[in-house]
């Protein structure tokens, strides 16, 4: 699932100082989340201050296990609300990672009727022809 239509650009993330570390890690095929070393809490999306202890110097990037379960999802089935660079149908899954953080992405080799809440998945990375690196989720053994 989630195959691209050639010739239509894939939108790029807007990178700023707060999320630079996240996208730099993706470029290196790693998934990281912002973590406060003082509170031992994850925060996503990343931000300049820990909302629990208000510290601005205890925030670090911690590598994710890459494992999670599908918490919810949508399936784009018509071109009305889909982005035209994707072949239909395609799913966007919300995955609850083992760290407790939830992120969205497309799927890899999961049939539409297999996309269900509770499905165990793990992250994988792909290099796009336009030079950007993105992540997806594929099935894993529970």
């Amino acid at each position: 699932m989630a195959e691209y239509v050639q010739g239509i650009p894939i939108m790029r993330p807007y990178i700023d100082q707060d999320n630079q570390g996240y996208w730099d890690a993706v470029k290196n095929h790693k998934l990281v989340f912002q973590h406060c070393s003082k509170c031992d809490k994850y925060h996503h999306p990343p931000r300049p201050m820990c909302p629990s202890c208000h510290s601005q110097d205890t925030l670090e990037w911690k590598e994710s296990s890459g494992k999670g379960i599908i918490y919810s999802f949508v399936m784009f089935t018509t071109n009305k609300m889909a982005y035209p660079a994707f072949k239909l149908p395609y799913a966007v899954v919300l995955v609850e990672m083992e760290e407790g953080v939830r992120i969205t992405a497309n799927t890899h080799e999961i049939e539409p009727d297999e996309v269900q809440v509770g499905l165990p998945v793990e992250v994988m990375f792909e290099e796009l022809p336009d030079g950007q690196t993105l992540y997806r989720f594929k099935k894993r053994e529970a």
């Binding site: 993330p13 889909a82 982005y83 992405a105």
Partner: peptide, 9 residues
Amino acid sequence: GYQWPFGFV
């Protein structure tokens, strides 16, 4: 940026 690249716009 956490949504758009995935055709989630």
